[in-house]
């Protein structure tokens, strides 16, 4: 059984991390590099010098980009292990088929995206380098708490049988946002809002695509094993 879970997670994580990493390098990295020009003061928003006004492909920095790909794969392997553990438990408890297949995997992937990317981004927008942000430790605690609460909420929406448990799901979904994410004391980031906003939306878009690949692939491979493995 361990091999079934592990193989599904690692193969799917490697593929999703590769897809996400390549999309990141193509669509997110140019925005990030431009933001760093503002972060380091090479460009100044509303400064005396005219600013660059287009975000273009920035070329390859081999070492830096390979590290990015490697960490993308590593992170999606981590996501994959968490996802297949949950698919395995749901399958074992007969909440879903023992062979959920590729299509159901897409739903699992979207749920993972909502729990681990969309929900925390609702309070802590994906940060481009150089934006003002609150205390790191407080943000990490809020991030982990929000992903956990949202994951439990989605599980309850999918599988709970009583209204009380559904209501508990709604509370868990909303609580992190009613409590609120750690906030900055003042808006003083040097990066133009146009760059920060396109960065945030591209991060979410790439995340959704990678998560769909992860869910579909993990569930597909999981379903190819016989349940006793």
């Amino acid at each position: 059984m361990f091999m079934r879970l592990f193989t599904s997670a690692i193969f799917a994580g490697a593929l999703a991390g590769l897809v996400g990493g390549i999309l990141q390098l193509g669509f997110v990295q140019p925005v990030l590099l431009m933001a760093e020009l503002y972060e380091t003061g090479q460009l100044v928003h509303f400064g005396a010098e005219p600013e660059a006004i287009s975000i273009s492909y920035a070329g390859i920095d081999l070492t830096r980009d390979l590290w990015s790909l490697a960490f993308s794969i590593l992170i999606y392997c981590g996501y994959g292990l968490m996802l297949v553990a949950l698919i395995g438990i749901a399958s074992e408890q007969s909440l879903i088929s023992s062979r959920p297949g590729l299509r159901h995997g897409i739903v699992w992937g979207v749920a993972g995206f909502v729990a681990l990317h969309l929900a925390p981004s609702f309070g802590l927008a994906p940060e481009v380098p150089g934006v003002a942000s609150a205390d790191l430790e407080a943000r990490q605690i809020w991030w982990f708490a929000t992903t956990l609460a949202t994951s439990v909420a989605l599980w309850l929406f999918a599988f709970a049988r009583t209204r009380l448990m559904i209501a508990l799901g709604v509370i868990l979904l909303l609580a992190p946002h009613i409590i609120g994410a750690p906030t900055v004391s003042q808006f003083r980031g040097p990066v133009p809002p146009e760059i920060a906003s396109i960065f945030a939306s591209r991060v979410l878009g790439v995340g959704l695509m990678a998560w769909v690949v992860l869910g579909a692939t993990a569930s597909y491979i999981f379903s190819r094993f016989s349940p006793s493995h």
């Binding site: 997110v28 990015s68 993308s72 990317h117 994906p126 940060e127 481009v128 991060v203 979410l204």
Partner: peptide, 15 residues
Amino acid sequence: GAAHDTRHATGFPCH
């Protein structure tokens, strides 16, 4: 340092 870009590009709190 190594994970910096991916952390930003995944929406994690980074620094």
